[in-house]
Amino acid sequence: MSDSSAHNRDSASPLQSRSPTPSPQDTLTLRALVSTKDAGVIIGKAGKNVAELREQTGVKAGVSKVIQGVHERVLTVTGPVESVAKAYTLIISQLVASNPSSPITASPSSSHTTVRLLISHNLMGTIIGRSGLKIKAIQDGSGARMVASKEMLPQSTERIVDVQGSPEAIGLAIEEIGKCLLEDWERGMGTVLYRPGTSEERTGTRRSTNGLSSSSYGGSRRSNGDNVRRATSPSSQQASVAAQPAANMRTQNISIPSDMVGCIIGRSGTKITEIRRLSGSRISIAKAPHDETGERMFTIVGTPEANEKALFLLYNQLESEKERRVGREAQQQQEMQD
């Protein structure tokens, strides 16, 4: 494993591809969570391994910087789908071969392992498919097993998809996953990326540079926003957003299932008003579904920071409603059995 200085040198340097840059429509960026130990193997001494990976596949690849007290880092690979899949296959093979505890027999390809992909919550339906048909087809075609987490990661709108199998099987699955993500790339716009942090940062006890507690868009999935009110007053937050130059404003669109829109708006608009107030973003809701899926478009306008808070609050509200409905259905089934 390389030392931490080598890690930092590599992660801080620009990620360069040896091949011509493909068009944006054909370019996939796929992130995965890796341990600090595995990150060292991926980078290699003085960045040797990651440089060879870029040379062999033509992708851009890098690992996030080391954070003291945090044992996870984010691997990011960008390039054409086939190249990204090949890069992940090589990375996984390298990790399996470097781990003496792996049950390697004839070759690394015979060993099974797991890669933890970071996928936008909004794109999970694209990968799973109607009635789970898509994820089943990917598993059957690749020989890999896929398990999607139910919860979004702290302070983000990303979820983990564990892909389990041999390096080759995982590579095949990643190629199919990548194709799904590119086909429906618009749904991934506005994703709040997961950034590994210490427990102190996640619980909001640490103050950020803008004076807001980290808990203003983190904390409990069922948070009602009280922690935000303690962190900053509505008037000061709105004033800071209003003071932002127009060039710093961003517009983001997300699709919400029609049957979930009511829970986000709330009675007499109370919940959406609260989300607007807490985030400082302007949020408008389409009156009708925008396509055959029956989903309605939410348009969020504000600074990048305000939009990030708005997205997190919106997704939290969605998750809370889903949990409530699941609990209600379970209770109804129990009553029917009784």
Results as ranks from 00 to 15, higher is better:
Leu172Met: 14
Val228Gln: 08
Glu200His: 09
Met189Tyr: 10
Gln237Met: 05
Ile174Trp: 01
Leu181Met: 06
Pro234Ser: 09
Arg229His: 09
Thr232Phe: 07
Glu176Thr: 05
Trp185Met: 08
Gly188Val: 03
Ala231Pro: 00
Ser240Asp: 07
Glu200Tyr: 08
Thr209Gln: 13
Ser235Asn: 12
Ser214Glu: 01
Ala231Gln: 06
Arg195Ser: 13
Thr209Met: 11
Gly165Thr: 02
Pro234Arg: 05
Ala231Met: 04
Ser166Phe: 00
Arg222Asn: 08
Ser213Pro: 00
Arg195Glu: 13
Thr209Asp: 13
Val228Cys: 13
Gly218Val: 10
Arg230Pro: 06
Met189Lys: 06
Ser213Ala: 11
Thr203Asp: 13
Gly188His: 05
Arg222Tyr: 09
Val163Cys: 05
Ser220Trp: 02
Ser214Leu: 03
Glu186His: 15
Ser240Met: 14
Thr203Phe: 00
Ser199Met: 12
Ser220Val: 09
Gly219Val: 12
Ser236Val: 15
Leu172Gln: 13
Gly219Leu: 07
Thr191Trp: 15
Arg207Lys: 05
Ser213Cys: 05
Gly211Cys: 12
Pro196Gln: 07
Asp226Thr: 10
Gly211Thr: 11
Gly197Val: 10
Val192Ser: 08
Thr198Asn: 10
Val192Gln: 06
Gly171Ile: 15
Gly197Asn: 07
Ser213His: 02
Cys180Leu: 02
Tyr217Asp: 09
Ala231Tyr: 00
Ser240Tyr: 01
Glu168His: 12
Arg206Asn: 09
Glu183Leu: 14
Val228Ile: 14
Trp185Tyr: 15
Tyr194Gly: 04
Leu181Pro: 01
Ile174Cys: 06
Ser220Lys: 08
Leu172Phe: 14
Arg202Cys: 10
Arg187His: 07
Glu200Ile: 06
Glu176Pro: 01
Asn227Pro: 00
Tyr194Trp: 09
Ser213Phe: 02
Gly218Pro: 03
Glu176Ile: 03
Asp184Phe: 11
Thr191Glu: 14
Thr191Leu: 11
Tyr194Leu: 05
Arg230Trp: 10
Ser235Ala: 15
Arg229Asp: 09
Gly178Lys: 04
Thr205Ala: 06
Asp162Gln: 11
Thr198Ile: 04
Gln238Ala: 04
Gln237His: 01
Glu186Val: 15
Glu201Ser: 03
Ser213Arg: 04
